[in-house]
Design a binder for these strands. Structure first.
Lengths: 109, 109
DNA sequence: AATCTTCATCGTAATATTGCAATATTAAAT
DNA sequence: ATTTAATATTGCAATATTACGATGAAGATT
């Protein structure tokens, strides 16, 4: 198949899965880290930071954008990118939430 | 291609991407949520909780296991599953960490 | 021993992802 | 107007993922 049966799951489950999936590639993790490391919006030069060809980087940026994890602003010739605080915060809240639920009361594992 | 160029990224980037990828499917989010909701190790019956066939669930469990997000203990005929606190904690720490880095100082976005 | 239960694995089809070369687009610079 | 620079899109090949029926393996039940 290859297509997920998203209709059988809750909106939240699908939403979180989409965010996690968007972060499920080292290049995209690297992009997020880079955007955060410069602590500002980045116009261009993301391609130079990654060991991947320009179309590949562009594709990864697109996926991060689709998931809402980054935003891009057209700045004349270039495009300024930055991390979307709200979306990353949503994922953060979720992971925090489920992490706090772990108790492993009867720890068979 | 279809294969990620993992060798060009740091161990941490690859590790986090692997964890995120493992959570990048609603069924696997549902599995984690279910394991946490019962607040215990679950022997079997995960298949009954999901709208997917048994081999499919087994496959998803395998991926979660490979990523280290869950553990499975053989309990006679059945297998007891529970969430691996350490691994989920690692992802939680990471997301917390990068979330805290957001400042969007010159907010062009 | 034969059967049932539980879970994993195999095989396979459908689809998605990854990566890049080639090309297109758009705005700035000349 | 041409050229340059930055990014997106297209098209394609290689590989991965998702899903499930069929089958296998191993302990439990009868």
């Amino acid at each position: 198949m290859g297509a997920s049966k998203t209709e059988h799951f809750t909106d939240e489950q699908n939403e979180i899965a989409t965010l996690a999936k968007a972060l499920g590639h080292p290049a995209r993790i690297a992009i997020i880290e880079y955007l955060l490391s410069v602590d500002a919006c980045i116009c261009g030069d993301i391609v130079n930071e990654l060991p991947l060809a320009q179309p590949t980087v562009s594709q990864h940026l697109k996926e991060l954008k689709n998931a809402g994890l980054i935003q891009g602003n057209i700045e004349g010739n270039a495009i300024c990118y930055c991390v979307n605080e709200e979306t990353l915060g949503k994922l953060n809240n979720y992971i925090n939430h489920i992490s706090n639920k772990i108790t492993n009361r009867n720890n068979c594992c």
